[in-house]
């Protein structure tokens, strides 16, 4: 049985889109000759040539600007940041230009910005971050964060076909850890619509709203808690912008207790935003406080023990869920 990894799914999405649409090009550091730092684009240069697979200098702002300009000229560029942490260097280009272009001039910017996010691989404070909230906060950018093999492919295809800038966050820990059979992938949705969350597990006691790698932490905790008679419902947001708040509210209205789980740090995180939405729109449906399980407000530690303590683990979810269930 052929297995497909999360990384392979990303590769396939780009490959298939490039085969389908000659306007799709790739830009980034080492994406061509070297095949990408994580080998996502291995073989692309040979297949699609140097006009479509462009190795860039170490200048995130520069090649993001190039991608935006190319998109104005009819191409559909996919920009790879070697580590998503360095998207910070392109912050101005993304937030002040790409995000506002359609609003200011009616000019859509159909680019995809993708790169490895997240920790858990002992990569330290500059190669482990989750920068989604800078962009979630900026109107004009879509943000997606797939957790499964099928979503990795389906959301990237949707992002490439989208008429506006999409930040595509791939979790580096999932690259080779998450797998699906080829048959499973082939039977899955080819293009996953952006802005649609999914209930991954049904439960009646607590809804855990999460995304990206934390999906697996939530599911692991759900297994442990099920033995104690506490049933978690697990929602995989998949898209942060636009947010499928109806999916969240629907579960909250039925289950009445909600926990939001993410690997990003706490203050100003997605959890706070979802908590606010729930409090505003489903206050009368709450049977307990809205609980957040997140990383603490510190840089991502390098030391293994500290990184383990930093990233939420199943036991953190279990403990918080027990308290909330008993509330």
């Amino acid at each position: 049985m052929t297995e497909v990894t999360y990384l392979e799914a990303i590769r396939r999405a780009m490959w298939e889109e490039m085969e389908r649409d000659p306007r799709v090009i790739l830009l980034g550091e080492d994406v061509g000759l070297y095949g990408g730092a994580f080998k996502v684009t291995a073989g692309f240069l040979e297949r699609f040539g140097k006009d479509r697979i462009i190795d860039t200098p170490i200048s995130e702002e520069g090649y993001t600007g190039v991608a935006i300009g190319a998109s104005f000229n009819g191409l559909r560029p996919v920009v790879e940041y070697q580590f998503i942490d360095f998207i910070a260097n392109a912050f101005n280009m993304i937030t002040n230009f790409a995000a506002k272009s359609r609003y200011r001039w009616g000019a859509g910017v159909p680019i995809v910005m993708r790169g490895p996010a997240g920790g858990g691989v002992r990569a330290g404070p500059f190669h482990s971050q989750n920068p989604e909230m800078h962009f979630v906060h900026t109107p004009g950018i879509k943000v997606v964060a797939p957790a499964t093999v099928a979503d990795a492919r389906g959301l990237l295809k949707a992002a490439i076909r989208d008429e506006d800038p999409v930040l595509y966050l791939e979790h580096k820990k999932l690259y080779r850890h998450v797998k699906a059979s080829l048959a499973e992938l082939e039977s899955a949705e080819d293009v996953v619509p952006i802005g649609r969350a999914l209930v991954r597990r049904r439960g009646e006691d607590i809804v855990v709203v999460t995304y990206s790698a934390m999906l697996y932490v939530a599911l692991e905790a759900a297994e442990i808690l099920a033995k104690e008679g506490i049933e978690l419902e697990v929602i995989d947001l998949r898209s942060l912008v636009p947010l499928d708040k109806e999916c969240v509210l629907e579960s909250v209205r039925r289950v009445n207790k909600v926990m939001i789980l993410h690997e990003d740090t706490r203050t100003g995180g997605m959890a706070g935003e979802i908590a606010a939405i729930v409090a505003e729109e489903a206050f009368d449906d709450l049977d307990g406080p809205i609980v957040r399980v997140t990383a603490p407000d510190t840089p991502v530690p390098y030391a293994a023990a500290l990184e383990d303590a930093f990233i939420p683990r199943a036991e953190d979810v279990v403990r918080a869920a027990r308290r909330l269930a008993a509330y």
Partner: peptide
């Protein structure tokens, strides 16, 4: 104490 609180504290859902 738990006893004196009994029935006085509840959630928005329970009150609804």
């Amino acid at each position: 104490s738990a006893t004196s609180e009994r029935g006085h504290r509840s959630s928005p859902l329970v009150r609804r």
